[in-house]
Amino acid sequence: MNPATLRYAAAGIGALVLIALPLGLPDYSHYVLSLWALTTIAAIGLNLTFGYVGQISLGQAAFVGIGAYVTALLTTRGWPLLAAYVLAFAACFALGSGLGYPALRARRPLLPFITLAFGTFVFLVFRNEDWLTGGIYGINRVPRPSLFGLSTAAPLGFYYFCLFNLVVVTAAVWWLRRSPWGRAFAALRANPLRAEAVGIDTRLYTLIAIALGAALGGVAGVLYAALLQYVDPTPFSLTMSVSLLLMVVMGGSGRSLGPFLGAAAAVVLPEGLRFAQNYYLLGYALAVILLMAFWPAGLMGLFDRLLTMVMKLSAASAKAPP
């Protein structure tokens, strides 16, 4: 089998596992898996920003929050969820470009600081501007969508809805990476100077990656509002932004599967380690520091190493005389 076929097969098996996984599990696990799926979408967005073009964003939670609040505000007023998708995507794309453009003008890495300041400001808007956001009480009774007459009000139905979103986002990013744009991204990542020399407008491509990363944060926010059916400012803090960034790093920045693994380690794993709940975030951050010291390529890098080792071993045993 060639690597491409193998990859398609693995993707198909992965999708089947994700479809079969919640069957027979209690409702609460459907909630956790939904949260994992939407967190993965936010992390996939950040992986565009950080993994592909090497820009640190410390404001992804703000974009998730904007997506969530846009959804809550629109759907509680009777608008369809599709309108929330469009507005959340467009608003976050525009805001992402609006932050990225000035950040990329300086030669110093300004994006982390500008996104950090943006996240702080947006959090204050959520918390203080009661007339719009309901302040600390938030917005209640966000409706769940129904698709083609199928309601997603039940936890399992909503999980499949999240999974559907995740598949669409993954396919879109997969397509993007294979498009001429994606090749420009890859060239940019491999060698920015050479990319510029062959005529790629590196600043424009970096800006597009930042904006798309922000927009995917908004999409995750749409799902977040519909999952909890309630939004308040608390979750969209700096801690969420940092956690999302650490998930990307943990999984392996720039790797397509990285966000899936990083989000699983951040969202699903602590459910199994209930006793350690209070210390989980602390441990996760410590693990990232250790990864940076010994394994900057993250879990996917570790996986690659193991794979090459296994291949070498099997090749060696094949060559060995019987």
Partner: peptide
């Protein structure tokens, strides 16, 4: 290194 200091900030805070 930048990522590590971001993580370190979270470690100290938590």
């Amino acid at each position: 290194l930048a990522i590590a200091t971001i993580a370190l900030g979270l470690v100290i805070k938590e």
